[in-house]
Simulated scan of single mutants.
Amino acid sequence: MRREVCSLAFVRAVFAEFIATLIFVFLGLGSALKWPSALPTILQISLAFGLSIGTLVQSLGHVSGAHINPAVTLAFLVGSHISILRAFFYIVAQLLGGMTGAAILYAVAPSGVRGNLAINALNNNTTPGQAVAIEIILTFQLVLCIFASTDGRRNDNLGSPALSIGLSVALGHLIGIYYTGCSMNPARSFAPAVVVKKFNNHWVFWVGPLVGGILASVIYNYLLFPYKRTVAEKLAIFLGNFEPEEEEWDERQETRKRRSIDLPTL
């Protein structure tokens, strides 16, 4: 565990989560501000959030995995993909990055358009219970897409995981904006709430995404496409002491070779 935390790769990964969440929150919230000459549309906001996630996953996925979301990080922890310490530092970095991005946006946006900084709120007479349900469903489909599109065991034509994940985020916003402004990400909700100091029904935007992420992780990693790992291996991953067996490494390499061979020639 100490070896993982003290490594340079770990520090880079945590910093990447900070930077990625900062940029995501700045771009996403910035798209939803109410400029007087051109009010933002739902399609515009959805594309801005989706394209920003897709871009950041493509840019930083190889450094940290580009979680950019505490619900995703918790899902990876539950699915035995990362250690408890990595999850903790990732979530701290995401929250700090989100708050920094929101604070920068608040500072540079004209006072007449910043409003509540696109804070998540219950819309169209949505009750807290309905809001939690919609956030669970939207986060579930996002996290399920993340696991499926980044699964190294697949040998079919995946296409672009970054694009798939970005489209999943955009899809969630096309529906979720009507209910809650669409969170799917506690860091995205927490950041503007801290800056504008408004926490009405804020618990909704933690409970919904976290439950949705956990459900998706359990269903994908333990029911739909489970990993063949022993309890000891899962414990080693949890503690940050796991090293893949040589056979598992060879299998991953072979999968990558098959995937490259199976790609169609354009």
Rank of each mutant, 00 (worst) to 15 (best):
T21I: 03
V92T: 09
E4N: 05
M1Q: 12
G115Y: 03
A121S: 15
A16K: 00
L43V: 14
R114L: 07
H173E: 02
Y220E: 07
V92R: 01
N157V: 15
K34M: 10
P264E: 10
V57A: 11
L51V: 04
T255M: 06
G112T: 03
A20R: 02
A107W: 12
E135T: 01
G112R: 03
L122N: 11
A32Y: 02
I42H: 08
V63D: 11
N241Q: 13
G152N: 11
L96F: 15
N116Y: 10
F76K: 11
A66Y: 05
L223M: 14
N155D: 08
L263W: 12
G97T: 09
P161L: 10
S260A: 13
P264Q: 09
R256W: 08
L85M: 11
F242M: 07
V14I: 14
Y227F: 13
H202R: 01
L215P: 04
V57W: 04
E246W: 07
E251A: 15
A121D: 10
L142K: 00
L142G: 00
N120S: 04
Q141R: 10
N124L: 09
A38R: 10
L215C: 13
E254T: 15
S59F: 13
F76T: 12
G79D: 05
S59Y: 09
A93Q: 06
T100E: 03
T150K: 02
S189D: 03
G208Q: 01
L235P: 06
I177V: 14
I23S: 00
L85P: 00
A193N: 06
F24R: 01
A102Q: 04
A66L: 07
I68Y: 04
S149T: 15
S80C: 12
G101A: 08
L235W: 13
A232R: 14
L266Q: 14
L263F: 13
P192C: 03
A133K: 01
L56N: 06
E246L: 12
C6A: 12
T126H: 04
L171R: 05
R153G: 11
S189T: 13
A170W: 06
C145H: 07
F199P: 01
R256L: 12
R258V: 12
A66S: 15
V204Q: 00
I134G: 01
I42W: 09
S83G: 03
T150H: 01
V218W: 08
C182R: 04
M184T: 00
V14D: 04
S7T: 11
L235Y: 15
L171P: 01
I53D: 00
V11G: 10
A107R: 08
G129P: 00
G79S: 09
A75I: 04
I82A: 07
A109T: 04
I119C: 00
